[in-house]
């Protein structure tokens, strides 16, 4: 299975939200990384056939997804950023309803609903109304509904928002298990999530793809550009405003700055191994 985004662009009036996006997705987890307003959600909405692109098209195995229609959606699972729900439905009722809309038979819908509620740790809350669930629990219902029907393509917009660390680890496990036979597109600001599960990362800035690489390849590109520098507290502002900092840590009378820079910021600066946060700062700050 191959999902190809072919020269996709989106204009809102004269504002270009996406411009000439070209990327090809196979099985595996793809992380979509970019600052706010980069066009991540717009791209995801186009990929889920919710939004019409101003130009270009999205192809699934060579066929336009808007032509495939229901056949494409049969293979799709989507978790939107602002996940909506019917407040008076219980978690189980909501999942059953979505399962039926996904074309699952009653018995299968019941089986999958129970299984997914168990998987996301909400088996005990199955009878509770959605409005009574916490934000994180609702998000877990959202993840479960995206997984209903065993979709081949999973598009997840900020899936870990609102989840506690334990749940995030659980979610990473679920995605890792799924990634072998599915195409997963994951957008998140929690870069450590991407580091843990993404096979490739798509860097999106102002509606343009600036790079698509495996995480370690991207990290290799910024090798030798990350430094740790310890300075007195009074010098903190000077360095922080001059260089891109991915971390600042206080150590008594001094602070340790993690600086991402093409040149060495100071002779006492120590080169460090880059991580995903450094990568984010390098490309987007």
């Amino acid at each position: 299975m191959k999902l190809v985004i072919e020269k996709v662009s989106k204009l809102y009036g004269s504002f270009s939200a996406l411009s000439n996006i070209e990327v090809s997705l196979d099985n595996g987890v793809y992380g979509l990384l970019g600052p706010n307003g980069a066009g991540k959600t717009t791209l995801m909405r186009i990929m889920t056939d919710l939004l019409k692109p101003s130009g270009g098209r999205v192809l699934l195995d060579g066929v336009d997804i808007s032509v495939l229609g229901a056949e494409f959606r049969r293979r799709l699972g989507y978790l939107p950023q602002d996940f909506g729900f019917y407040p008076n439905y219980t978690a189980e009722q909501f999942l059953m309803y979505i399962a039926r809309l996904k074309g699952l038979g009653k018995a299968e819908a019941k089986r999958q609903t129970a299984e997914l509620l168990e998987m996301v740790g909400l088996a005990e809350k199955r009878g509770q109304q959605m409005k009574a669930l916490s934000g994180g629990q609702r998000q877990r219902v959202g993840i479960a509904q995206a997984l209903l029907g065993d979709p081949d393509i999973l598009v997840l917009d900020e899936p870990t928002a609102g989840l506690d660390p334990e749940e995030r680890i659980r979610f990473r496990g679920i995605i890792s298990n799924l990634s072998r036979q599915k195409t997963v597109l994951l957008s998140t600001h929690i870069v450590s999530d991407l580091e843990a599960v993404a096979h490739e990362i798509i860097l999106l800035k102002k509606g343009v793809i600036i790079d698509v690489e495996k995480p370690h390849e991207l990290l290799r590109k910024i090798e030798g550009k990350v430094f740790s520098l310890t300075v007195p507290v009074e010098k903190e502002f000077e360095f922080a405003s001059k260089y891109r900092c991915s971390n600042i840590m206080s150590e008594g009378a001094s602070v340790v700055l993690r600086i991402v820079s093409d040149e060495k910021p100071h002779e006492t600066a120590i080169p460090m191994a880059p991580n995903m946060e450094d990568l984010y700062v390098y490309y987007f700050k």
Binding site: L50, D82, F85, Y86, I98, R100, L101
Partner: peptide, 22 residues
């Protein structure tokens, strides 16, 4: 109009039978 009011429309419209058939 309920799907739009509750914000469930995106989930519904990406389901296989969430458009014409529904």
């Amino acid at each position: 109009s309920i799907d739009k009011e509750t914000g469930a429309d995106t989930v519904i419209h990406t389901a296989r039978y969430g458009r014409r058939r529904l």
